[in-house]
């Protein structure tokens, strides 16, 4: 296997790990959400970059010399499908973000904090009061 291989993969993996690290290490819920978003964005970049061909044009039917649409032979173009898919993925990502941030707002309203450890203390207090834990 050649090293370092395709550089776009490296970018994707780097971004993904940054997001993942933020997700795990941060106690602040908003930071966690941002980390998650970074994580998802790296996937989008991955898809988009796989469709790209160096020197390829936009996937548009090009007329040949006689004016027949799509008649031009051997036109190099980028694969549009991954790009289209990512439109959907972006929508999904935005929805997830919105959902997550809405939850953070509700959590702030109920618990008065968005720090994970402080919330955890209150949750534990709830459980003790309920007798769910010995």
């Amino acid at each position: 296997m050649e090293f370092p291989g395709l550089f776009n993969y490296w970018v994707v993996i780097f971004l993904m790990m940054v997001g993942f690290y933020a997700l795990i290490s941060r106690g602040n819920l908003v930071k966690k959400v941002v980390g998650l978003n970074l994580f998802q964005t790296s996937v989008i970049i991955f898809y988009v970059s796989t469709g790209k061909i160096v020197g390829g044009t936009a996937p548009i039917l090009i007329e040949d010399d006689h004016g027949v649409a799509g008649g031009a032979a051997e036109v190099l173009y980028s694969n549009p499908l991954p790009h289209v898919l990512m439109l959907t993925a972006i929508v999904v990502g935005v929805a997830t973000m919105a959902m997550a941030l809405a939850l953070v707002v509700r959590i702030k309203e109920t618990y008065g904090t968005i720090e994970d450890d402080e919330i955890q203390e209150q949750v534990l207090a709830d459980e003790l009061q309920e007798g769910a834990r010995p």
Partner: peptide, 24 residues
């Protein structure tokens, strides 16, 4: 129960990671 919010958030994080893995 107010703990519902926390568990929903946690599920969201885990679920989104899972979904991202699937999409990769």
């Amino acid at each position: 129960d107010r703990r519902a919010l926390v568990s929903a958030f946690r599920y969201l994080i885990m679920g989104s990671i899972g979904a991202s893995f699937i999409v990769i």
